[in-house]
Design a binder for these strands. Structure first.
Lengths: 90, 90
DNA sequence: GGGCATTTGTTCGTATGTATG
DNA sequence: CCATACATACGAACAAATGCC
């Protein structure tokens, strides 16, 4: 690509964009605790990225404790007030 | 691109093989319009692929308008003469 | 009406190959 | 060489509709 788009904002890697979007949605309460966030496939389509990229964003959210993932069901927003007993044993 | 890989073989992805096999069966009339194509599980066993791979092949067939899928029942060959009112605007 | 098998739909977990910077 | 990204593939579990008994 012989072009550098005049981009004053940092390029922000694709997974960062997905991460930002999800974080904002959660912190703004658009996705309530207990609710499911968009599936990986949906994130792929919505942001035009590959599944691995969407997964990376979700993984960061999980590591930050904002969400919990259940196999075959989806990824859900954790309740920040309720200590869901991961560390701090109960 | 420093190199054009001298790759005379096109590996043809697994889902392509399944897709080809189904397409041939349909176009040769071995599966008649209205009839059901093999279930996803059957395609998996027959071709030795995972379900996602079989599903990908079927999805392409559906997008091409050769078949229609009904939840809980199966996937059926469409009648090319009978316009079932999707595309080909008539 | 209920229970069960079949079938498609959905979702996450993991791995591999390729391309690019 | 390595990190990022994409496409494909296989595996496993859950969910829902259908059809038969």
């Amino acid at each position: 690509m012989p072009e550098s788009p005049p981009d004053p904002h940092r390029p922000r890697a694709p997974y960062m964009r997905v991460l930002d979007a999800l974080t904002v949605d959660i912190e703004a309460g658009r996705i309530q605790p207990g609710e499911r966030i968009p599936s990986e496939s949906e994130l792929c389509e919505r942001h035009g990225v590959a599944r691995e990229t969407a997964r990376r964003a979700v993984r960061v959210l999980r590591e930050r404790g904002l969400v919990e993932t259940e196999w075959g069901r989806g990824t859900f927003v954790r309740d920040p007030s309720a200590d869901q007993g991961r560390e701090s044993g109960i």
